[in-house]
Design a protein around this nucleic acid. Sequence first.
DNA 1: TTGAAAGCGCTAACAC
DNA 2: GTGTTAGCGCTTTCAA
Lengths: 347, 347
Amino acid sequence: MRRGREVTLRDVAELAGVSSRTVSNVVNGYANVTERTRLRVQQAVDQLGYRPNVLARNLARGRSGQIAVVVPYLDTPYFSELLQGIIRAARVQGYNVLIDQTDGDREHERMLINHGSSRLLFDGVIFSPLGLSQEALADRDPALPLVILGERVSDGTFDHVGIDDIAASRQATEHLLDLGRTRLAAIGDQPYETGEAAQLRTRGFREAHERRGLPVREDLVIGTPRFNRVDGAGAMAHLLDRDDPPDAVFCYSDLVALGAIHTLVGRGLRVPEDVAVIGYDDIEDGRYSNPPVTTISPDKEMIATTAVERLLLRIGSPTPPPGLELRAPHRLIVRESTAGRASSMIT
Amino acid sequence: MRRGREVTLRDVAELAGVSSRTVSNVVNGYANVTERTRLRVQQAVDQLGYRPNVLARNLARGRSGQIAVVVPYLDTPYFSELLQGIIRAARVQGYNVLIDQTDGDREHERMLINHGSSRLLFDGVIFSPLGLSQEALADRDPALPLVILGERVSDGTFDHVGIDDIAASRQATEHLLDLGRTRLAAIGDQPYETGEAAQLRTRGFREAHERRGLPVREDLVIGTPRFNRVDGAGAMAHLLDRDDPPDAVFCYSDLVALGAIHTLVGRGLRVPEDVAVIGYDDIEDGRYSNPPVTTISPDKEMIATTAVERLLLRIGSPTPPPGLELRAPHRLIVRESTAGRASSMIT
DNA sequence: TTGAAAGCGCTAACAC
DNA sequence: GTGTTAGCGCTTTCAA
């Protein structure tokens, strides 16, 4: 991609009659430069239309000026909404964002985090792991600045940004209970190693029951491999085939909720009259579905900016700062899927 | 980001007892290297755990190994679905993908395409313009390899990948007409400079009417600023307030259709009995909505791979290849929003 | 087939 | 403050 000959730092230096060192200083706003020379250099820069070569700069600096964001699925609305915020926040700081999708592939996730093949392509990574175990996380390249999104717990070597999933899930469940529902189902449990996110929600679900002194209907806690529409639709169908179907469902994502509602309506049941449905994530889809979905809304903007902020801090630090647990706020947004028509409101 | 000392090409050369040139040849699979030296070098590489420094390589080669993909909105399902395909296709070719979101901002789009500030950050760009005029496109940095997605027409200096929007829209409209509907509305027209995408759809809508010798109900052709749910919901409400509301609606995106359906159901109307609704894009949401949305399905995988393929070809060519018009296939997928329950099928 | 060496364009010690 | 200069790690021309 050499188009013609690019204007280099040296060209500018020559024209301005100074050394390249000085030009570099001016361009980067470094050090002390006399106002007069600064001006002369600036003039030369403008005249020549000089633009620094990012590649060369990065090579010399030993950094790439890019951060990677790794998510399991790009087309999951929750992630794409989050990504927007991250890109914005990073750009403000002069960083570019490389986006990667793992499809939840364990091997791919491990590779990324070991920083192997793409060494120096990014200076740090914001990671939303899916298939990655806590151990794999632990024996990663320790020099790679890392911020984890979602439900992992920090081991002190990275930052973790998320909401309080247990509290949020408890709150969602209590909302259902407050409606007078008695047969609550939960869709989305993942009772295995990599299902920590799901397990926290299940725990909140249980805690809500405990607080009310109510038993959890264990047979109504349904597992799903992913948190998407298909899974939600399937699980709901499964639930409806029981003798004693639920009158309310806590779905571990809005997509799951959308899938569940799809099945309910398809079977001629009314939401929320026959079955109340609550979701999680507050994605845009849920606001315009029929009926609109009651949900737990994490503060995505806050999650995005916090993650970027912490990562850049990590990248900039010669000695790694301690790994923090950072909690973004969330709130319950009540819509028609639990409250019925005309009673939409925000709590 | 200097962590310890990295293994360099020279280290390998030293250990293998050859020059760095030879190591480079082996690593890149270049030129003729004796099987014996190749083996010796490979051994040294493995032993030292050498990994090439991408930054240095790119600087020397004068390219970045990255392509940029620019879309108006990341959280639009159509784009995020497309992006997945692009990322995959690029990775296969050893390219990384930089994603940028313009929010449809004209200035931002122009800046990107002029390649100014980010020179050498990416070697080419796949661009889905929104606010950019044909002229702005024309006076861009001519050296920047470019592939345009969507509805622009190539002026011969870039490639354009898309589906035949007129034909697709005509087909969608004819489907509605075939259902025996007589009062067809269209939601999504954008009768101004940057609304070329929308205008093609409107044209297809008209052509379908013409072919049947039917008049277009001009008052039922509604404009919307964007192609999203809110717009669809609003436009639909507007239509229903007419004296003579439509009995079928052609929506210029699935999101618009989802919004329209939301309004319809909210007003107690049945889809498709009272009003049939057809969308465009075939996003996943439309498959699990209530009712599932009949739609025009562009071959996204094909669009993605074609775009990447053409762009890399452009990047690799010393002399720019002629700008091509590339048409990906599309098909009509009939679901309940037009065909009614139980009559889902694919055409 | 392989080696020596000159860049790629910028940064940053080190010296003045 | 500013200049000199040695890299950053790799590619690649030119010779051998």
